[in-house]
């Protein structure tokens, strides 16, 4: 029972958080932003963490989601959230188109290819009249119906994001325990060995990429619903991709709760630096992320959560020596 105590307490805390900070817009907003960051990073984690295919161009899916949401409003007059399924479908198709040629590339080459695609889309989007060009597009200024999700408080977003994150983590947990989870980890460790055991690595990497793209797109749509505005930089900018990677890597890539832990640390940090440094802080964000990348790579290659998982690293011999006198 004891092992459920801590997670249980966290779930309760997550559920009542808005009540605890009620009346403080800054804290309400921060809660929602942490969850949104966690959704994006958790989506990235499927392909980047579990399958080990480090995409640094996931902003392409995020942007697809954000633009899909705003485009259905601008051009069709629909509520932005109605664009979310469209963005997800388009992102799955896009993932297939990008993934088939690029997932054959190993390691860094895959990462570079994803950056190239995202940058290409960013530049194209800034020249597209349909997408509002470099100025971007805005959602409904005044709520028409409740479906426009134009809430004054961030608390409704908090609960929407919490539900989406719970669903995504549940799905990831289910995948992790099944065939696909085993196969993705095998591909990450040694694709050649995985293939020798009958793992269709190309197919599984593509599945992971498509699924990851779909949920990253959903994060983009949710972002638009909350902020009501997207331009090429906030949709397709490389910082969006880097944030997902850094959050997941900080908490633990390929670990279920890794991205959430990363978001819990990085999002408040970013909000803090933005509010204290104002406009001058924008450039500093890159410096902070750069420093974090260096620190993770040097000291914590498996992320923060690996600090709490010392047990599997213990040599197995202890188990065969009943005389050793350890209580556990």
């Amino acid at each position: 029972m004891k092992r459920y105590l801590f997670p249980g307490a966290l779930v309760v805390l997550a559920l009542v958080y808005p009540l605890l900070v009620a009346g403080s817009p800054v804290w309400e907003r921060l809660g929602a932003l942490v969850l949104l960051g966690a959704i994006g990073a958790s989506a990235w984690n499927i392909v980047g963490g579990y399958a080990g295919q480090v995409s640094v161009g996931h902003s392409v899916f995020f942007g697809f989601g954000a633009y899909s949401a705003v485009v259905v409003y601008t051009h069709l007059g629909w509520p932005p959230i109605a664009g979310a399924p469209l963005g997800m479908v388009l992102s799955v198709l896009l993932a297939a188109i990008i993934g088939v040629p690029t997932l054959r590339l190993a390691g860094h080459y895959f990462s570079m290819a994803t950056i190239a695609v995202a940058e290409l889309v960013r530049v194209l989007s800034s020249t597209s009249e349909f997408l509002g060009g470099a100025q971007g597009l805005g959602g409904p200024a005044m709520p028409r119906t409740v479906f426009d999700l134009s809430f004054i408080s961030a608390t409704p977003f908090y609960y929407i994001f919490l539900a989406v994150l719970a669903f995504l983590l549940g799905l990831t947990w289910w995948i992790e325990r099944g065939r696909m989870g085993f196969y993705l980890r095998a591909i990450k460790d040694s694709e050649r060995a995985a293939r020798s055991l009958g793992v269709s690595s190309g197919r599984y990497k593509l599945y992971a990429y498509m699924l990851s793209g779909a949920f990253t797109s959903l994060a983009g749509s949710l972002y638009l619903c909350m902020f009501g505005f997207v331009d090429p930089e906030s949709g397709f900018g490389i910082l969006i991709s880097v944030k997902m990677v850094v959050m997941a890597a900080l908490g633990g890539a390929g670990v279920l709760f890794g991205p959430l832990v990363g978001a819990l640390i990085l999002v408040p940090l970013e909000e803090l630096s933005n509010s204290y440094l104002g406009g001058r802080g924008a450039g500093l964000t890159f410096v902070v992320y750069g420093a974090i990348i260096v620190i993770i790579a040097r000291f914590l290659p498996s992320g923060l959560l690996s600090l709490f998982e010392r047990r599997p690293a213990r040599p197995p011999a202890a188990k065969n020596q009943p005389a050793s006198g350890h209580a556990d």
């Binding site: 325990r177 099944g178 065939r179 085993f182 196969y183 980890r185 095998a186 990450k188 460790d189 040694s190 050649r192 060995a193 995985a194 020798s196 055991l197 009958g198 793992v199 599997p312």
Partner: peptide
């Protein structure tokens, strides 16, 4: 097998073998 062993290093011994067994078994 491989000349230089390519075991799945991040996994347990059991999980390594499970990857092989999944080829002929439906559930984990």
């Amino acid at each position: 097998t491989f000349q230089v062993p390519l075991t799945f290093e991040s996994m347990s011994v059991l999980d390594n073998a499970t990857i092989g067994a999944l080829l002929r078994h439906h559930t984990a």
